[in-house]
Each structure stands twice: as C-alpha cells, then as structure tokens.
Design a protein around this nucleic acid. Structure first.
Lengths: 330, 330
DNA sequence: TTGTAAGCGTTATCAT
DNA sequence: ATGATAACGCTTACAA
C-alpha cells in the first residue's frame, strides 16, 4: 500500500506538504504542488479514509435508514440519496428501521463509531431516543414524513396534497368519493391525508366515506369492500398509497366494474406500482428522488435546519375520469 | 469520547488486556474479565471501528453494488444482504453499477480505502477490471447472474429454470407458447433463458415464437405485439421477467383477451410486481432474498469459492391455466 | 496472566 | 512555504 510518506519521499517534500496539496489547503508553491501531484499520479496514491477519519473525527459516510430495503417508496428516496451522495463524494451506509429497536440502536452505534457525517431516516420520525443514541455531533434528518416538532425533515404537505387530490376528483364532477386511508397508527402521514380529504369533502358538502388499510397492496381489496359496504354507489376512490390504489383497480375490475368509466381511482406517491396496472394509476405524486437528494444537501450544510416542504403534484393517467352521467348525486 | 485507556484505568488493567477481553481473546483471568466488563458497562465504552480498522487493515463493511437502487429484483436481493449482514455485525455500503464506469471505479476505490471485508455485485458480472480495481485482498461475489468463468457467484440455473417453466406450460396442454425474451445483450441471463425455452419447445416438437424486450415493464406491450404478429393464436406467453409479464397481462386484457381463460401468462423472478396485476402472475421464482443472504455468508468464509447454484421453483397463481379447448393445435 | 511499546496512515500544531 | 512531531484509538509482538 502506498502511503503519504511514499509520496512525500518521491516528491522530495514532507508528508505534511503532501497532505496540504491533496486536501487543497494553502501553504505551498505552484512548483511543489506540481511535483506532489506528479508523485501522486505516478504512485497512484489514494488517501486512506480510515486514517483520515481517525484523525479528523469525521468520515464521508452517510447513514440511510429505511423501514425495509425493499419498499417501493423507500427505493425511490434511496435512489435520490445515493445519487446525490455519490456526486458529493459521500458513501452511503444502509440500515433498516423496520427491524426491532435493538437493531436500530445497533445501526446508530455503528454509524457513530464510523463517525458518519449524518443520518437520513426514511418514513420514520426522529425520536428523542434516536437523537440521544446518535450523540451531539451527528446531524439527522427525516424524509417523507414530518412531525410537528420542527425537526429537520424533507416532506410534502400531506394534508394539502390530499386536499388537492380530493379537489381534483371533485372538479371532475365526483361527489361520492371514498377514501381508502392508511394505518391510523401512522399519525404523521395517514392522519394528515385523511384530514385533507375530510376538509375538501366538507367544503364541497359531500358525505365522506372512509375505510382504513395498511398502505400495502394486500389491504386494498378489503378496504374497497369496506368502502362499498358503506356506499355501493361510489364513483371515485382515493387511495392514499399507489399500492392500495392498484389493488383497488384490480379488485374493481374483478367485480366487473370498469375503471375509469364506472369508478375512478386515484393513488398517492407515484411509485413504480402506479404503472403496473391497467389503466395506469392517476396519482398524487411526491418528488421522492428529489426529496432524497434534498435530504443529502440539507444534511451537509448543517445550517438550514427545520422542515423543508416539497411541492406535490397530481399526475393524470388513465384511472380517473368524470363520473358516469347516470350516476345519482347523493 | 470514552477510549480503551479510560476503561483500562477504571478497571485497573492495561489497555492491552481490555482489548483482549473486548475481542474475546485468551489471556486473562475470570476475575479481570469481570472487572473489565463492568468498566465497559459503566463507561458505556464502544470500540472505535476506525481505529481498529486502521490497525487490523480490515473493517466490517460489505460493499453492495446494484444496477439501480430502485429495482424490484435488486431490492429483494439487497433486503437479504442487509439482513444477513446485520445479523453478522457487518455494515452495508451502497453503490450503483448502472452509473458510468468512472463512478463504479470510484465506488471500488472507496470500498478499498475503507478496507471493506468484501463486495457483492448484483446483476453484473465480475470483470477483469473490477477485480483489479479492488486489489488482491478484497473478495467479490456476484448475485443473480453467473458467467462461465467460475467466478464466485450465487445464482439459479437460468437455462434449466426457463426449461422447467416452459415444460410447465407444455404440461398444462399448451403448444403455441410465445417467449418474450430479455435484452439479447444480456448474455448471461436473457440468453440462457432463451436456450431453455428453445430446448423445451424443440423436445416437444413445438414451433418456437420469440420476441425481445428489455426486461422492463415498458417493453412488454410491444413485445406482445411482436409475438402476436407472428402467431395470433398463441395460448401462452412466457415472459422472462415479471415486469414484462405484468405488462402482457394488462395489454392482453386491454385487447379483450381473458387471462388465463384465453391466454396464459407466466413471469420470471417473483418480484413484488407479480402480485400487482390481476390475476396475479404465475412465475418462475428465484429465491432472491435467500440469494442475498447466501452471498454474504459465502463472501465471509472466503473458502467456498466458485459458483453456487440455488434452486428455482414455479409458483402458480392465477395467470396460468390449460389452453381453451377450442384452440387449434399447430 | 498481564503490561509496555510500537506502530497503522493521517492531520494539525508549532516551529523555522 | 515547509518540516518535525505529536496525536487520533486501537491491536499485537514481545517482555515480564
């Protein structure tokens, strides 16, 4: 292995000077810089990150914790994080928050002893315990979820997005719109989305009809059941995840209802799943990759704390249309 | 920060002894062990991985390179890798191979300077250049792809799996079976699968009908077009990825053909996509998470080199059935 | 069984 | 502008 001393010797300078050149600090002549750079090239010297990290007490590692590695939403965020980190010369260390809390404590420990530059948490709020486990020197930021504590985060305004999504359906002419909500335990995502829906429905003087799912595909069919049991004449279903939306499309068709001619379906998130049904799912999109990138840059300039709200936008595909003309208005 | 010296002092022993205890080596009495462990507890000492890695020239980091972070197949493998690594006390560092080769060189450099314990490559073969960039001390293994060079790998027997898949369709009674193949540039995945299909068809004295896609969903509809243009009476379509299979199901239904009553569709891989269509896709499954776990354990006991073949198995869901009785045999 | 001491490769302080 | 030198926190001969 070629060390900084080898380079120094080869260039006829001291290790300190090589370090200065390599790190772009000041304190050397153009001429020595050239000699050093030549030696670096020649010997193909590479800085030892371990040694540097030990000395500087900081490495170019970013911790990335997702509920599950194989999760459509998390995947898109991860993709953005990875890209931005890569471009800035940072390495990404992966972990799961879905695991037992003993595991997540382990991750944070690892990240701390590797002297990570920061930690990104996907779809999970920053608890007091997490903050504590991480120590005072490592910044942390959450993505795709926003609590009210003002912790650093990158997320959309879930309530407003759900409101806008519902308004869209209303504007198409629907009045009997069912909400397939998320797990009520999800206080910072499912709840605001439900509030947004309720507000839009109330403003439009429409009767809300809701059922709860788990966000996952598997819960979609049962959720649809619940909705239809309350109002069999629903002309639109707003599912707060694409997975549930896809399940609703499939289940509706299985029951002989056409999408969107008989019933419109609107999803949420714009994950890859929205493209995997026919007709493709209209959806309230979160800029997930962009949010991943933003999390990295926000983390790295440690000022600019607090929550960052990203824009949401509606994508119309084939699963939404005006209601059938025959449909009776409740 | 609490160091090994602090613990030593607190326990009234030398740093060397603390190190021995912490690392479970020999050379200390039960009584000192207890004193040291108590001190570790009391001060909540944690080994500094950077310092240890610098000294031992090895860290508990595993590099994981995927074509894209957000890729259904890679996601499942990553999930398995992450779980196994976590359980063994290893950290996972993420990278993309889909990026330009300058980037991948950068990843390997990073992994090398962090003294990674090994590298796992998803859906990419180990090139000479990769091997070289990594240096002689870091083992590497590929997953979900197997070249003929005998490099370490964990994969299924793609040709046999495709053969078995085709046989399954034949056994159901189909004779007019179209293959929606993968990108022909994919020499170590798409090609073997095509060979397996051709062999089974030839043995059964059936006429092969093939078209090529890209593995991605987007290429499914056009692929189906290509197939139907050659034989509009196909009763089964074997797509060599679930994404293409899902697209075929959706496109078939859009054209008014029922699945599986009119046409059976069989996918490949058993990724989450296979569940997102209706009827759910029957598929030739790869044990992707298991393969990820296996890659980690194989990597870590550096003996046991060479390729490891994992079992494939067919999962019947709703998209396959016997051909319609009226269907004329070619 | 235990301690001493010499690094691992880097950066930062203090001279010059 | 440059160089000695002392850490950073750990492991590991080698001694005792």
């Amino acid at each position: 292995m070629v060390t900084i001393r080898d380079v120094a010797q080869h260039a006829g300078v001291s290790p300190a000077t090589v370090s200065r050149v390599v790190n772009g600090l000041v304190g050397y002549s153009d001429e020595t810089r050239e000699r050093v750079e030549a030696a670096v090239q020649k010997l193909s010297y590479e800085t030892d990150y371990l040694a540097r990290g030990l000395k500087t007490r900081q490495t170019s590692v970013i911790g990335l914790l997702a509920p599950m590695v194989s999760d459509a939403l998390a995947s898109k965020v991860m993709q953005g994080v990875e890209e931005e980190a890569q471009e800035r010369g940072y390495a990404v260390m992966l972990g799961r928050t879905g695991a037992k809390s003993a595991f997540i404590a382990g991750y944070l420990r690892t990240l701390r002893t590797y002297r990570a530059a920061g930690v990104i948490l996907i779809s999970a709020v920053i608890t007091q315990e997490t903050r504590q486990l991480l120590g005072p020197n490592i910044p942390i930021i959450s993505v795709a979820i926003s609590d009210k504590s003002g912790s650093p985060s990158v997320a959309i305004d879930d309530e407003q997005a759900a409101y806008d999504a519902t308004r869209h359906l209303l504007r198409l002419g629907h009045r009997r719109i069912g909400l397939l909500a998320g797990d009520p335990a999800s206080v910072f995502v499912a709840k605001p989305r439900e509030r947004g829906y309720l507000r839009a429905m109330s403003e439009a003087k429409c009767t809300p009809v809701t059922a709860s799912g788990s966000f996952f595909y598997e819960s979609g069919a049962a959720g649809l059941d619940g909705l239809l049991a309350q109002d069999a004449g629903l002309t639109a279903i707003f599912a707060v995840s694409d997975e549930m939306g896809a399940a609703v499309v499939n289940e509706l068709q299985r029951r002989g209802r056409r999408v969107p001619e008989d019933v419109s379906v609107l999803g949420f998130d714009n994950t890859s799943t929205s493209l995997h049904v026919h007709p493709p799912l209209s959806t309230m999109a979160q800029p997930l990759e962009e949010m991943g990138r933003m999390a990295v840059s926000k983390l790295l300039r440690s000022r600019a704390l607090g929550p960052k709200i990203m824009p949401h936008h509606l994508i119309e595909r084939g699963s939404t249309a005006p209601p059938p003309i025959s449909s009776p208005q409740t």
